[in-house]
């Protein structure tokens, strides 16, 4: 177990660095000069030249990458956004909380919904509850999120169309965790507003993870329900709920935990479409705008954060996996290497 953990931790750093380097080089391969993009249709050639030199973007790639990593390691500095007058660290501190709150809200809807419908579908296989759940999950996976979002907005005219709070509301806060912080501080009116504004985006965003979890839960449960020990459990006269929940579910949990973890990782990386429809100021839009504008430092900083998050999520899944199935750690390093 210790060896496994050590190996997994050791792999984290190079994985993150490789992701960072790919983003670093990739964004520079796009033939879009960030300075010309900033100038729009009013570029001033002399200023463009001077800015290229000032930012060191005329230097070879390896020098630029070296400089970035050096600043990052020595000073924890991700640089400045070229488009906005703020450091990338401040930018991330502004957008990441919005993404975290939206992700958690979506998971609160998606996980119970997905797991319950997966179990129901497996238990009543090929009967109407199964068909209903699987049809629902097909819709969840295939209908685009922005379409669901716009439908929700028109269908529920009394709900706010996204945003974190109504315009003009300002209150005492020190982070952008609007919901969490107001909960901790007991600012109940803000909590009520924040929850209300969170509803539609969270519902829209939860559709895909709920559907994915439901499908995986169904097939995992089906596999387990056909196992010999379950037949034994039935034979011993256990009630249905007990066989399903106490005997089958724990053994079907591993794939469910894995898919839930991966979905969490994806949601934390930002949900561009949901954010766009609901004007939600999260990580996804921040990154997409930065790519469009070739805002190098923002792309790098955001990729670094997302890569680190994914690595952490994967690590957490593995640890949970170990908890659920101790043999996993023993199978050890080779297995883990495949997962990275």
């Amino acid at each position: 177990m210790t060896r496994f953990l050590a190996w997994r931790l050791a792999v984290c750093i190079p994985t993150t660095l490789v992701a960072l380097s790919i983003a670093f080089i990739g964004i520079r391969l796009i033939p879009n000069n960030p300075i010309l993009a900033r100038f729009g249709q009013h570029a001033v050639p002399q200023q463009v030249q001077a800015e290229m030199i000032r930012h060191g973007w005329d230097r070879p790639l390896y020098e630029q990458l070296g400089g970035f990593v050096k600043d990052l390691v020595l000073r924890g500095d991700l640089g400045e956004s070229f488009f906005h007058n703020e450091s990338v660290t401040d930018g991330l501190a502004r957008v990441f909380p919005a993404t975290v709150e939206l992700t958690l809200a979506a998971l609160v809807i998606a996980l119970p919904l997905g797991i319950v419908s997966g179990i129901v579908a497996a238990v009543w296989k090929d009967r109407w509850p199964d068909r209903l759940c699987m049809a629902g999950s097909l819709v969840g996976i295939s209908v685009p999120v922005f379409f669901i979002g716009i439908c929700l907005i028109y269908a529920l005219p009394n709900m706010p169309t996204g945003r974190r709070l109504p315009p003009g509301v300002f209150y005492d806060r020190s982070t952008e965790f609007v919901l969490f912080e107001s909960l901790l501080r007991g600012q109940w009116h803000v909590v009520a507003l924040a929850v209300k504004h969170l509803c539609l985006p969270a519902i829209a965003l939860s559709t895909i993870p709920a559907a994915m979890v439901a499908r995986v839960a169904r097939s995992a449960m089906l596999e387990v329900l056909n196992a010999d020990y379950i037949r034994t459990a039935w034979a011993k006269g256990n009630p249905r709920w007990r066989v399903v929940l106490c005997h089958a579910l724990p053994n079907a949990a591993i794939p469910i935990v894995e898919i839930s973890g991966l979905q969490t990782g994806q949601l934390l990386a930002g949900a561009v479409l949901t954010e766009t429809v609901f004007s939600w100021p999260g990580l996804g839009q921040y990154l997409v705008h930065a790519v469009q504008q070739s805002d190098y430092n923002v792309v790098q900083g955001t990729t670094l954060l997302i890569a680190a998050l994914f690595v952490l999520v994967n690590l957490t899944i593995d640890l949970l996996h170990c908890g659920l199935d101790p043999r996993f750690a023993e199978r050890g390093v080779a297995n883990a290497a495949n997962r990275v």
């Binding site: 009394n158 709900m159 706010p160 109504p166 315009p167 509301v169 300002f170 009116h189 009520a192 507003l193």
Partner: peptide, 15 residues
């Protein structure tokens, strides 16, 4: 105004 907006659910013009 916050109470009103949180409670009644009618779209409001901000603060």
């Amino acid at each position: 105004s916050l109470m009103e907006m949180a409670g009644c659910g009618a779209p409001g013009n901000g603060a």
